[in-house]
Design a protein around this nucleic acid. Sequence first.
DNA 1: AAATGATTAAAACAATTGTTCAAATATTTT
DNA 2: AAAATATTTGAACAATTGTTTTAATCATTT
Lengths: 199, 199
Amino acid sequence: MTENKLDTEEKIKAAAAKLFTQRGYAATKTRDIAEEAGINLSLLNYYFRSKEKLFNLIMGEKIRQFFGIVVPVITDASLDLELKIELFVEKYIETLTQNPDLPIFVLNEIRNDPKHFVEEIGANKILMSSSLMNQIRAKNPEVNPVHFIMNLMGMSVFPFLSKPVFMASQVVDENSFRALMEERRKLIPIWMKAIVESK
Amino acid sequence: MTENKLDTEEKIKAAAAKLFTQRGYAATKTRDIAEEAGINLSLLNYYFRSKEKLFNLIMGEKIRQFFGIVVPVITDASLDLELKIELFVEKYIETLTQNPDLPIFVLNEIRNDPKHFVEEIGANKILMSSSLMNQIRAKNPEVNPVHFIMNLMGMSVFPFLSKPVFMASQVVDENSFRALMEERRKLIPIWMKAIVESK
DNA sequence: AAATGATTAAAACAATTGTTCAAATATTTT
DNA sequence: AAAATATTTGAACAATTGTTTTAATCATTT
């Protein structure tokens, strides 16, 4: 039955995505994926040929998820800078709240295999030539706009990267972290404005 | 000879530190460490009992390195807020320029084993009760000071976490990245001031 | 020079892990 | 219904990997 086939294939992909993002490539065993998916180990190779091919598939999806979120925002010339920032922050905090393991996984695996990232994100010059970058340059021509994007991403993404540290230190718990992120959704645009206009 | 003993022990530790921080625990093989150190495989177990014990040793050192840098700064009540920020940024950018793999390794492994982190950093309440936090609270009582520390760390550390992305995207190369970080050393304190005083 | 103890090397072991195979079961097509 | 095809299963294989063992080498002491 064709539906059953999609079912198991999706089950394997979901299990693989969960474990790969949580543990990384090397620490994830094919038997763990099979168990998590509730399927026989052989089916993994039957459907995806090898652990590596399955990983590359998941990896590609995660890369597109992580970087694709904001592409429509940063490229849309009809949005002014202020609105772009608001949407950028909102999209990231929303997506990462649902997928807290996404950033550390993506950053890790890009470092391990930068080529795969370049192949996956066909147009890698999108960022520098984007409407967002031009608007930043116009606003403050004296500062390299890369600083701006590092600040914007840093303030949005870093909290999720460092969440385990703040949790372990008992600085936040699951609920207060969520509340903090809600606050940041409104605060980061204000801070970014202050940064761009500073000095 | 006792000097030779220290020599090989240090060689193994250096090799282990390099490979563990670059690849993580699971992807690092004991045989790779031995080869990198230029020693026989058996010596690893002879000196450190097991891969896991060796890893915990390295891990502890890296955690202390990553978090220890700024403890003297954030706890010293004789430094005013502005100077604290300057020193904080300077220390981090300096240390991470020398050890670019440090943050992603530390954040990764803390997520994998938060308990080890808590045991390693005995006093985990240092941050919240630090002189730095009190100075922030005094300056802007309306905003949770955790936001402030996330911004400060995010702006300082995130560039190193995302460096492989910007390199692969050809947004920066090794030299321009270094130059950017030099700029940030001066800019982040200015931006942080703008943030704290915003609204 | 012989003996002792520390250090190093090579080989082997046992468990793990990715993958394949052959048979069984289920589904679709003729 | 029979044949053909697709899916699932359990066992097995081969390579990898952390660790241990046994013997050899080296430096130091007697």
